[in-house]
Simulated assay, not measured.
Amino acid sequence: MVRKCSITGKKANNGYQVSHSHIRTKKLQQVNLQMKRIWNQKLQSWQKIKLSTKAIKKLIIKS
């Protein structure tokens, strides 16, 4: 399964890890994903989805 947020669509970001001697090596900055149960109004049931923490904060603010 892809490491991607179901709501915001966030995914890994390419970046550099810079050492003290300024040697740069490529790295991936992964999204902070959490498994959450969300109530689905249409299906009238709980669904488990992967959400980023930013999406969770947005859901809490809306409700």
Rank of each mutant, 00 (worst) to 15 (best):
S21K: 13
G15K: 10
T53C: 07
K48P: 02
Q41G: 04
K36W: 02
Q41D: 10
A12E: 13
Q34S: 14
L59M: 11
Q44K: 15
K42I: 09
S52R: 01
I49K: 03
K54M: 06
L59H: 01
K42H: 10
T53M: 10
Q41W: 02
K48R: 12
K48V: 12
H22M: 06
R3H: 14
L51E: 00
N14M: 13
L59W: 01
N13G: 08
C5I: 01
K27C: 08
K11I: 06
I56Y: 00
R24C: 04
N40S: 11
L33I: 04
M35I: 11
A55Y: 00
H22K: 13
R24N: 05
K10A: 14
R3C: 11
I61M: 04
K42T: 12
I60R: 09
L33T: 00
L43C: 09
K10V: 03
Q17N: 14
A12K: 13
S52V: 00
Q34F: 05
Q34D: 07
K54P: 01
K36Q: 09
Q30A: 13
N13K: 14
N13E: 14
K57G: 04
S6N: 06
K10N: 06
N14S: 14
S52D: 01
L28Y: 01
S19Q: 05
G15N: 11
I38D: 00
I7R: 08
K10Q: 11
T25D: 07
K54F: 04
S19K: 05
S45T: 14
Q47N: 12
K36S: 06
K26T: 10
V31A: 09
T8M: 06
L59Y: 03
Q29F: 15
I23Q: 14
K10G: 04
S21Q: 07
K58I: 07
R24Y: 03
R37L: 12
R3P: 08
S21Y: 04
K57Q: 05
H22S: 12
I23V: 14
I49R: 02
S45M: 12
N32K: 10
